[in-house]
Amino acid sequence: MSDAANPYAAAHIQVLEGREAIRKRPGMYVGSTSERGLHNQVFEVSDWAVNEVLAGRAGHVDVALESDGCVRVAIDGPGIPVEAAGHTGEPSLEELLTRMHAGRRSGGRRFVGVGLFGMGPFVANALSSRLTGEVQREGVRWVQRFDCGAAAGPPSPEGLTTGTGTVIAFRPDADIFGTAECSFDALAEHFRTLAFLNRGLDISLTDQRAPSGPRSERFLFPGGAKDFVAFVTAQTGTSDETGVFDFEHEDPRIAGSVEVALRWSHTFTGGIQSFANSMPTPGGGSHVVGFRDGLAAAINTFTRERQLLTKIDTDLRPDRLCNGLTAVVSVKLDHPEFEGATRGILGNVEVRECVALAVQDHLITWLAEDPRLASAVVSRIATSTWPAQA
């Protein structure tokens, strides 16, 4: 087919930027236009708010599902800068809501990944029919309104205040998400997980939509991953066979830290849940491989020393050791390397050995502290009392 019959020139190229690109292809930025995408829109804002808390710029995060369909995310603290008030040198309210990846730097292990692709509140604004940003700072209440991601005007002072903090309230665009509604349980699971993985993080979620009255839950877990494992096993109603083993380990070789918690029981329960910088890694990665290596090394060393295996028995394989196991494996790295845009697999090669050695050392110490209980647990593994993990 000739070029003359099908002319193609620069005039035929359509360039979409900023909010126009997001509204044209919303699935590329929040995953879908169904309930899942709606939740990711919320996470673009709430995860930014969580990072403000983790950075010490706020004390807690409050998320509310309002009866009129709006989502309200609020943090305390001094309030983010407002350019109209003369605050310069840091990203302002308008920049946060109209520029991709805006906001004060939140990199490294101390912060969580923002949203599905890490683009921040700008994405939530672009996919909202209306959004209001409110800042209470230095005695003044500032408000700025947006329509479909575009500022309706500059921030304006709307009275005096004795409070401080920042509120972002938005209505997801029905032309994009249709009749999809946020699920309280799905949002609660996300916030609960973040609170488990970050000791001291305080998040509350309130649902004002039900005619029967508000539903509210607060997430704050000082025990970290240990509380996480206890929660998972409690949900399944399994008996407490071993208590929860847990440890935290800082390792300069990976410029990061390792936190592990686990429990064995009579029945298969939660399996292994893994995270990197507080983001789920459903595909696993080097931290999960290292965990399995360390688990196998520790258990096999213990069983040989206690003569629970004969000299001719082969070592217990990691997949067999995971029968009846609930575990949380969390690494926090200054420089994480993920495979794929959705960050579902951790790729840092050096993490495998460091996690394996940490698990091996700490688990052997724990087993030695209570040989009677440890022998009972390992004997069950060795004799395959538990059903094989699916």
Rank of each mutant, 00 (worst) to 15 (best):
S2L: 13
S2V: 06
A5V: 13
P7Y: 05
A9E: 14
A11P: 01
R19S: 13
A21G: 00
P26N: 13
M28F: 13
M28P: 01
V30P: 05
S32R: 08
T33M: 07
R36L: 06
V63S: 06
A64M: 11
E66C: 14
E66H: 09
D68F: 03
V73G: 02
G77K: 03
P81N: 04
E83D: 03
A85C: 02
H87P: 00
T88A: 08
T98N: 04
L116Q: 12
N125P: 03
R130I: 06
L131V: 05
P154F: 10
V167A: 03
I168C: 02
F170M: 11
D173I: 11
S183E: 07
D185V: 08
F191M: 09
A195E: 01
N198K: 13
L201H: 07
S204K: 09
E217R: 15
G224L: 08
D227N: 06
F228A: 03
T242Q: 10
D246R: 05
E248V: 08
H249R: 11
P252V: 06
P252W: 03
I254R: 00
G256S: 04
A276C: 15
M279E: 10
P280T: 04
T281A: 01
G285L: 01
G290V: 07
G294S: 03
N300T: 05
T310C: 05
R320K: 11
N323Y: 02
R343L: 01
G347A: 12
E350M: 04
V351L: 11
C354K: 14
A356Q: 10
L367A: 09
R372G: 02
A390W: 10
